[in-house]
Design a protein around this nucleic acid. Structure first.
Length: 477
RNA sequence: GGCCCCUUCGUCUAGCGGUCCAGGACUCCGGGUUCUCAGUCCGGCAAUCGCGGGUUCGAAUCCCGCAGGGGUCACCA
């Protein structure tokens, strides 16, 4: 029996979560859910300056919406609470002190300006800047008000990355780095190592930008005499244009934006999982259960993947079409146009049923359903630009429409009777559907497109449909 | 610049020495579904596998160079 997997997602509350960040969380979550593992959420808020209002709430809300429930973390707690770094400062200070006492950490005597000078000089001489070349001979005693550096001896580090495979890096990537800032807060580099160790994390997934820092992390483990968890570097999610990774600065949209636009969490999860991972078969669509079952770090791609909105849209449409009608109707709450609000549920349910296979995201609902809720003004352009109808004069059109009106008025407006009546009209008028149906459809909707004619008429109802046909006829008189 | 990672259709990818003159999906194009849009079904366009050398009877697959892209070198994470 191997020890249960423990993974974590450890974001900073510095902005709304976007799809790139969340993919790392998803992979970690999937890994934990495969066995009787645990998924932890930890808030890394050690940079007070960059923290934004509502940052933590956004993280919690995003994960909950996606269904990535955590077993330990804010609101759940657990054996390693608290799960917010700013509430764990004593712990980091204790470990920092331990390093000071064993001579593995020392106070940094330099000011920011002095350090900048060192860096610039190194750059001018075209050699890498290494802090250890400036290590103070007799550092003053650390009193908690200076920056504290860990002393790391230059040596090579390598590890077997669960995604990337074997990676070795030379001693030049190792240098003394700051573990405690002058403001008394620990740095990410330091405290996440402590937390991951304390919390018993077995697999640490990090995005690609951390790859060069891993030797530092390994060395830090070594300083404490700890064993490193399994490291896994996940490739970046790139913006649609490629090149650089998805980021707030490059306009990556918050995950919750997609929710608000009417994307389904199943679609987002499926789509995000498919960026940089596949199960080796030709399957494209996965339920979350299938993802849990099939996900494998070894099949995670090493190269970056672009975020293709087009493909997301396709997937979302797919998931919308899968919805049961009641479920669809519930989810559509809040997306109806203001005009629709006065209508009863039964009517709106029927409308929803007609647009289900046309919706790519819920926010499209109003523009797809306008004419079901308001009488749109006569738009003569619809007929004047129609490839068949524009050839006919209004007298002919009026005659056709009038005939149609009478025939339709004789039905009960059920889809069955309407379909029959429409068929009969084709025979009777000797017109092609492209002419007759288009004419009726435009007259009754005043929109360039709509669901099927019989369905649309049936939902609109007899009274309203005939009224609109009359309006069009009046316009031609 | 040093170090590290990456490189198959426009995009996401399959491929782990022969079954690949490279398969699937999205997009796009054409056709069917008695109107439109969407959906759906059928069909099509699209990668000489970054380039150059090897190894081998045989390479997208192994090796070596090169090029391009990305990351990183913070008292940010």
């Amino acid at each position: 029996m191997s020890t249960p997997v423990r993974t974590r997602f450890a974001p900073s509350p510095t902005g709304a979560l976007h799809c790139g960040t969340v993919r790392t969380a998803l992979f970690a979550w999937l890994l934990a859910r495969q066995g009787n593992g645990s998924f932890l959420l930890r808030i890394e808020d050690t940079d007070q300056k960059r923290e934004i209002d509502g940052g933590t709430e956004n993280i919690l809300e995003t994960l909950k919406w996606l269904g990535l429930e955590w077993d330990e973390g804010p609101g759940i707690d657990g054996p390693h609470a608290p799960y917010v770094q700013s509430q764990r400062l004593e712990l980091y200070r204790k470990y920092a002190q331990q390093l000071v006492e064993s001579g593995l950490a020392y106070a940094d005597p330099y000011s920011t300006e002095e350090l900048d000078t060192f860096r610039q000089k190194a750059q001018a001489e075209k050699r890498p800047f290494l802090y250890r070349n400036h290590r103070p001979e007799n550092p003053s005693k650390y009193d908690g008000t200076q920056a504290l550096r860990i002393k790391l001896e230059p040596k090579s580090y390598g590890w077997d990355d669960a995604v990337m495979g074997r990676i070795d890096m030379g001693a030049e990537t190792i240098d003394d780095y700051i573990i405690m800032k002058a403001d008394g807060f620990p740095t990410y580099n330091f405290c996440h190592i402590i937390d991951d160790h304390e919390m018993g994390i077995t697999h640490v997934l990090r995005s690609q930008e951390f790859i060069a820092s891993i030797p530092k992390f390994l060395a830090t483990h070594e300083a404490f005499g700890w064993e490193s968890p399994i490291n896994a570097i996940v490739p970046p999610v790139l913006g649609a244009e490629g090149g650089t990774k998805l980021s707030k600065r490059k306009g990556a949209k918050p995950v919750l934006w997609y929710r608000d636009q009417g994307y389904l969490s199943e679609a987002i999860v499926n789509f995000i999982a498919s960026l940089g991972w596949n199960d080796g078969t030709e399957q494209e669509l996965f339920t979350i259960e299938e993802l849990v079952e099939k996900f494998d770090l070894e099949r995670v791609q090493k190269s970056g993947a672009r975020f293709d909105e087009q493909r997301l849209l396709w997937m979302n449409g797919h998931y919308i079409r899968q919805l049961f009608q009641d479920d669809l109707y519930d989810k559509l709450q809040g997306y109806w146009s203001p005009e629709a609000e006065g209508y009863d549920d039964d009517y709106k349910r029927q409308v929803a049923g007609l647009v289900q296979e046309r919706l790519k995201y819920f926010a499209e609902l109003p523009e797809l359903t306008r004419f079901f809720f308001e009488d749109l003004p006569i738009d003569s352009e619809l007929i004047n630009t129609h490839k068949q109808l524009k050839k006919l004069d209004s007298e002919t059109l009026a005659k056709l429409l009038s005939t149609s009106r009478e025939a339709l008025a004789d039905t009960d407006f059920s889809v069955e009777q309407l379909t029959d009546a429409l068929n009969d009209l084709l025979v009777q008028t000797e017109q092609k559907p492209a002419v007759l149906y288009s004419l009726i459809r435009i007259a009754v909707t005043q929109a360039p497109n709509s669901p099927g004619l019989a369905d649309t008429l049936a939902v609109l109802g007899k009274e309203r449909s005939l009224e609109r046909l009359d309006m069009q006829l009046t316009a031609w008189k």
